[in-house]
Design a protein around this nucleic acid. Structure first.
Lengths: 358, 358
DNA sequence: ATCGTTCATATGAACGTTCAAAAGGCGTTG
DNA sequence: CAACGCCTTTTGAACGTTCATATGAACGAT
């Protein structure tokens, strides 16, 4: 007997009947308790608990003309390529109940962000608004959503519409500045930088992270050489090899991402340098990659960003709220062995050939 | 002027009025076109297109007493810890439209899977059913869902209810057997195994992967030594060091996961062995870790699993379907430099100290 | 006693959809 | 030509909720 009998869920009428009141009184007990006489309120609440009643989302949505949901596009092409996409989605999910919404992820199979997907989600009244990620210069989505009058909020700047403040982002400059301070505190001589090349479509992220390093290291007088590479382990390792040619043990490298930092670790290990004692390395993102490899990194404030974005959306949906301007949130430095000068590299960092040093 | 006018979405009545028919005819045009006279059908369809009408999910859900949604728990504790969680969610999202459902992710903040979250999702009629991941021995969820009559399907076996077939999983044994074949084809002398220790709660996954290696390597006469370690880079690297003591250049290692394989690569590099030419390494999961490090791995058939699970759910929701029994899906071997005997290790695999060998 | 006030609770209506059933048109048949 | 059947289209009802409004009871003031 594999078929299961569906326990029929309680409705507001079931509660009303059980508590011997009208459905409106039950509704009031939940939404406007001050209108209900205390004795009645208690009785109704008891029945609500007993029957395990929760209002139907569909019926509420019907009445309010709101889906109570936020759409989030999962890029089927990138898949897991970004180290932060997954934790960010989790943080959005955790934050959602605080804003009385739930999330509806959707994906497009093609390479290009199909505005069609967004359109149909709204037409089916599946969602009221969207959270955008990976916005870039020439991104058609903000333009289109704006035109269609659909609220949205972006993780990252809205490049083609700098006048819009419906976004939240990581303060990259503040992050790398922290990294430079930390390396200085730990006694590393200079802080080199391995970043991204000036990109066509979203150079601001790259610029900000580099800027924080350059400014702070300039102030402290610890600025080392810099170099750029793609967000790719092989390319980062190659670039790091070149960068390390200009460094000596006792120096450090600030990186634009954890993946790049991993490349630096590899290049350093190949050279026989111990990560930490001989070379300080700081990554960016606070990703799984960082924690796995004992990397000091800048943990993105994803829970705060998620909360801020949902707040922006509910404000827009509520109607009146004026554009509050974008929010820059500061990442948190998490320290690992990669900037520990006293402890030798742990077992799981790439090791040089045995007997070669020390 | 930041406030936007909400373009009011078309309803079935708008279409009916425009096409000069009744709402039911519009409904029929969409759901039972054979009941509508061709000329009328064409006229209605034209108006549907012109107005961009799509039925309201809430209203349909109301009528059908179905949410049309599947709940997926995102574990806020694991966060991005699993290499497959993110791609799996993406694959579920991609597969969802094929089954006429959408997904609703939800999370619990606490460490233990709170059955309460599942319960409330159903009571609010937000979802009709659930996809479970990370099922394990003693998992309270299957028991509870079964009792409550809520359909579910699990990625991974349902350990406490082996009689239930509402699951799909990766065929671990078939995977590692492929790995052994591949290593044999490539001319590696023996295939050692670095797996997981017999675990308290979900030993079947570990057993299956080991079994596939043991059986096939036994048949081919290439079985090397084996060892176990936790799913942790440091532990894997340490264990690999011990395992490599029993191997020689020309041997290979099959690993229970990509992370463990990475540990093997580190241990081998520390020893001055070139990955590929000196030591073959095969991981499991086909994760981002694998592709980043040029690792030959067994790509989990996540799109197929996602599709199978949603199929199981829609069958259950449709009512009659008998338990079809669990499905084991075969992973695909993806080759990388880590099992290429001719090409030297690429730049991004950990390198030994320069000048040390070759 | 009659009237307004206030508080507590109840009823009607509507949101958008689809099932069930009714109704209208038209050709065939007894 | 009335009765029947078929094809197409329309109407009524219901899903569960909440807003707007109505009803009723209690009470103080005239």
């Amino acid at each position: 007997m594999s078929h299961r009998s569906h326990a029929t869920r309680a409705t507001i009428n079931d509660v009303a009947r059980a508590a011997d009141v009208s459905r409106q009184t039950v509704s009031n007990a939940l939404n406007k308790p001050h209108l209900v006489r205390p004795a009645t309120l208690e009785r109704v609440r008891a029945e609500i608990d007993r029957l395990g009643y929760l209002p139907s989302q569909a019926a509420q949505g019907m009445r309010s003309q709101r889906a109570g949901a936020i759409g989030v596009e999962l890029n089927a092409v990138h898949r897991g390529a970004s180290d932060v996409a997954q934790p960010f989605l989790t943080d959005l999910t955790v934050a959602a109940p605080r804003h009385d919404v739930h999330l509806v992820p959707f994906a497009h199979g093609t390479r290009f962000p199909a505005v069609d997907g967004y359109r149909d989600m709204v037409r089916r009244r599946l969602v009221d608004a969207f959270v955008l990620s990976d916005t870039h210069l020439g991104d058609p989505r903000p333009e289109w959503l704006l035109e269609a009058g659909i609220p949205f909020a972006a993780f990252g700047r809205i490049y083609d519409h700098p006048e819009l403040g419906w976004w939240a982002d990581v303060d990259g400059a503040a992050g790398t500045a922290q990294a430079v301070d930390h390396l200085h505190d730990r006694g590393y001589r200079t802080a080199a930088y391995l970043g991204w090349p000036p990109h066509k479509d979203d150079s601001e992220v790259a610029d900000a992270r580099r800027e924080g390093w350059l400014t702070r290291a300039g102030e402290l007088g610890t600025a080392g050489p810099e170099l750029a590479c793609e967000q790719d382990l092989a390319d980062a390792t190659l670039a790091a090899r070149t960068l390390l040619d200009q460094l000596e043990p006792g120096d450090a490298v600030v990186c634009a991402s954890d993946l790049i930092a991993l490349g630096v670790m590899y290049a350093a290990a190949a050279r026989g340098w111990r990560i930490g004692p001989d070379l300080g390395v700081v990554g960016f993102d606070g990703s799984l990659t960082a924690s796995r490899h004992g990397l000091t990194s800048l943990l993105q404030p994803l829970p705060d960003i998620a909360d801020a974005l949902l707040g922006l959306l509910t404000d827009q949906l509520a109607g009146g709220a004026d554009d509050p301007g974008g929010r820059l949130l500061t990442p948190t430095l998490t320290t690992g062995p990669s900037t520990d000068r006293t402890t030798a590299a742990t077992a799981y960092t790439p090791l040089p050939a045995p007997g070669k040093r020390r």
